[in-house]
Structures are given as structure tokens and as C-alpha cells.
Nucleic acid binder design. Structure first.
Lengths: 247, 247
DNA sequence: CTAGAGGTTGACGTAGCGTCAAGGTCAAGC
DNA sequence: GCTTGACCTTGACGCTACGTCAACCTCTAG
């Protein structure tokens, strides 16, 4: 009492190719092989096949399934291990979704520039040389990870500081303050502190701060944050002075 | 002003093998190839590489990345499409996690038997023949899908009906009612209705219901739901009579 | 006897590189 | 000038779980 490969495939809801594959990898051998080479499967094979397909539907890999079916591993135990893997995958997906959403907002809005873009823009596009000699290895991806690793709340807080800073800079520029004056220098100090919060290691050096100021002026996307080229020029001047005096 | 393959790999935080691969698939060619065959990359290549790695970190595939970088597709557009894919994947994972959890509870608890097991147990383990001739194709996997496709709430509701039904059967059996009586037959009617809710197509036939009743008695795991063999026997008798009279 | 359905093995394709393997090239030290 | 070690090249297999031809037998019904 047995079935051909097509028959058992239909019974179990899979394909003959899959059955041949299982035969190849030793997961499920035919119960009998005819003199003509045809594979035949009996009731035991069907039962085993059904367990295989069930575990497969739960997402287990072939080696894991084999372990369970050959009694080397407890069903529940294997599934619990598998569950942990699934949950990790889900977390990874969640993080990736968050990253993609952030990036989309950034691209679509053309709005407020965000941390990533600031860093990337500075790090690579504009100051490759300096980045190379200062952080050499992989600053871009590190900064990316830095941002991704923050919680939503932390990201929001960081953005908040950036907004406040930009607003204060704009106000100071509009008020016609002296870039070398105490108020502007205090702002520069806050700016440096804010930058230091970005990652642990890379230092806010004189060259870094000066280069950053130049970029704020040169790149209109950054300039927009400080009220255009005029405001950005004010920021640049104040930062340069601050850097020369303090770094 | 260019870098060797190792140098640029370190700069961007990837490996030389990856760069060769990108060269092979045409995603990123070296800016220059020395007479010795060495690959050299310049600033433009570095910039492109960084965009590649960023998109890769967001989970895009190489063809998608190529489209974006070659300007055939808008960044944001591509990412939105990708986002939908990610969300689908997440849903799939969620469903799988739920399935695995259910299965684990089932295995560990040895507790209340659940729908899946009822169906699987009936469909394949005990009544292969009948399943084969009645639904032939792939009833197991369909029933599995049926269950998985229900929301948590729906599953809970279905379970609730099952529990209520089991309790009523037990009460009737304990009360010493007549399996052929109106009360027992009404219960049998409810039981049939409940079964019909399981999937759309397969009909609750006379043979099916009779076979099911037999299994309730024969399989202690099912019998336990109806107060042991005695209770299950009562259910079986009532179902058989109901089936003969109405199906 | 013949057509058509079904069976067999063999081998390539998939995504994105990791990982040898075998063999040139380059810069530095003796 | 030679050796050594670091770095470069191309070529090819490996990984997951089969899908999909291709070329070629076998069985069954008319």
C-alpha cells in the first residue's frame, strides 16, 4: 500500500521536486524504489512528510527539522530556539523599517536637515580628505549606526537641541551681533557641545569646526538651517573664532 | 589621487571582495585599472560606494540600488516601495511567531487540545484514507492556513465555542441523558455547526461526523475534552445518530 | 502500437558575498 | 640582486531550498 511520488506530493500539498530534494539530503527517503527507479512512499513516509512540512511552515531549516525528526532534539526545545531567532529577525526588521522611514522623510521633505545628512555631508562628500586622515576607517557607517542605535526619544531630543540651536543662531545673526562677542561665542560653545554628543570618540577639533562652518555656508541645504547664506556666514565666523581661541 | 582596493574598502567600511563583486555585477567599476591589473578608485567612486553601502544597509537589493544610482529611479520612490516590502515581511514574521508560540504551548502544556491538533490528528494520523478520498489534495496545509489566517480574536472566539461545547457535552453525559434525545441531538447539531465553521469547502458528511466521534473515543487526548472515554462515548453515540438522521 | 502522462538523473539559477587556491606584483631590508 | 611579506589578480565552490528546463525512460489506456 504505497503511493507514487506525485500522489504523495498531492496528498501532502507539496511538489515531487521537493520530495526528491528531501531524498537527496537524507531528510525523507522513499520507502521503496522500484526496479525501474521509481520512488514509492508508504504511510510512515507520509506521516513523516507531514511533520516535515509542518515544521517547515513554522520556518525551521532542514537541518533543524532533521534533528527533531530523528529524535536528537525535543520538538518544543527546537521551537523555542527557533522562536528566539524569529524575534531577533523581527527586531532587525523593525530597526530597518525605522531607518528607511527616517531616510524617506529626509528625502521627501527637503525640510529640516537631520543628523545623518549633516554628518554624511560633512564626513564624506565635502571633506573626504580630512575624514580619511582623522577617522580613517569607517566613520560614515559608524555615524549611521550611532543614529540608528538611539531610541526614538533620544533622536527627538537630539533634533530638538539642533532646532533650538539653529533658531538661536538665526536670532543672533538677525540681531546683527558681533561674531566675536560673548553671546555668539557662547552659542559656538553650545554648538561644539552639541556636536560632541554625536559620537563618543571623534574629537571636535579646530579643523573640524572650521571646516563645518565653511560647509554651512557653501552648502545651501545647511545654510537654510541658519537663515540662508548670511546667517550661515555669521555662524561660520563665530565658529572659526571660537575654534581658534579654544581648540 | 586614488586608492587601492584595500584602502577604499577600509575607508568605506567594507571588504575588497565586496568591491570586486560590485565590479563584476557592474554596480561600481574601478575608476582606473593599472597595467598590472590592479583596481584603483577615486573620489567619485568613493562617493558612489558610500551611497551603495547606505542603501544596502537599508536593505535594498543590488538591482534596486543600481536603479537609484543610475538615476532611473527616484531615491524616495524606491525606498517607499522597499518599505512596503519590509512591512510585509514583518507581518509574515508576526504570523510565524504566533504560529510557533501556539505550537510550543500545545507541545509543552499537553493541556487543552487546540483546533490544529484536532484537525491534523483527524485528517492525517487517524484517517488518512478518508482524508485522501474526500479532500485529496492538501487538507492539512489548508487547515493550517485556515487557522493561521484568523486573527487572535477570531481564534479565541472559536476556542471559546469549542470549550463551551465540550462543557455542555460533559454535563449532558454526566446527567445520564439519552444520546438519541432532543437535548443531545441539539448538541450534536451545534457540534456540526461548529465544525462547519472550520473551513469553507469541506462538507460535514455522515462519514466524517461518524469517524470523528469514533476518534473522540479512541484517542485519549480527544476523549479528555469530553470527560474521558465515557463522556466521549456519549458524544460519539449522539453524533452517529445525528449523522444518520440528518446527513 | 502510439500518444500522453509521469518518472529518472543532471545541472543551472537564485543573493551576496565568504573563503580558499594558485599565482603575479610591489616595497622594504639584507 | 634577492628574499620576504603584504597585497593584487582571476577562478571557482559554498550557502538555502528548492524551481525550472533538458534529455531520456516507463507505464497505461485506447
Amino acid at each position: 500500500m504505497d503511493w507514487s511520488i506525485q500522489e504523495i506530493a498531492r496528498l501532502a500539498g507539496t511538489t515531487s521536486r521537493t520530495l526528491r530534494h528531501y531524498g537527496e539530503v537524507g531528510l525523507l527517503e522513499p520507502s521503496r524504489i522500484g526496479s525501474n527507479g521509481y520512488r514509492y512512499y508508504d504511510g510512515l513516509a507520509l506521516a513523516r512528510l507531514q511533520r516535515v512540512l509542518m515544521l517547515r511552515d513554522l520556518g525551521l531549516g532542514i537541518p533543524a527539522i532533521a534533528e527533531v525528526l530523528d529524535g536528537q532534539r525535543d520538538d518544543a526545545e527546537a521551537l523555542v530556539g527557533h522562536l528566539r531567532w524569529l524575534e531577533q529577525e523581527k527586531e532587525r526588521l523593525d530597526r530597518q523599517i525605522a531607518s528607511v522611514e527616517t531616510t524617506i522623510r529626509k528625502l521627501k521633505g527637503g525640510e529640516q536637515l537631520m543628523a545623518e545628512e549633516m554628518l554624511n555631508g560633512f564626513d564624506h562628500t565635502h571633506y573626504k580628505e580630512e575624514v580619511e586622515e582623522r577617522w580613517g576607517e569607517q566613520s560614515y557607517r559608524e555615524s549611521n549606526r550611532w543614529w540608528s542605535s538611539m531610541s526614538k526619544a533620544e533622536q527627538a531630543a537630539w533634533m530638538q537641541r539642533q532646532k533650538q540651536l539653529a533658531a538661536d543662531w538665526q536670532a543672533a545673526a538677525t540681531a546683527g551681533l558681533d561674531p566675536a562677542g560673548d553671546e555668539a561665542q557662547a552659542l559656538a560653545n553650545r554648538h561644539a557641545d552639541w556636536l560632541r554628543g554625536i559620537r563618543g570618540v571623534p574629537p571636535v577639533s579646530r579643523a573640524y569646526l572650521t571646516g563645518l562652518g565653511d560647509m554651512y555656508v557653501a552648502d545651501e541645504r545647511f545654510a537654510a538651517n541658519y537663515g540662508g547664506v548670511e546667517g550661515a556666514s555669521f555662524v561660520r565666523d563665530a565658529l572659526r573664532l571660537y575654534a581658534e581661541r579654544n581648540l
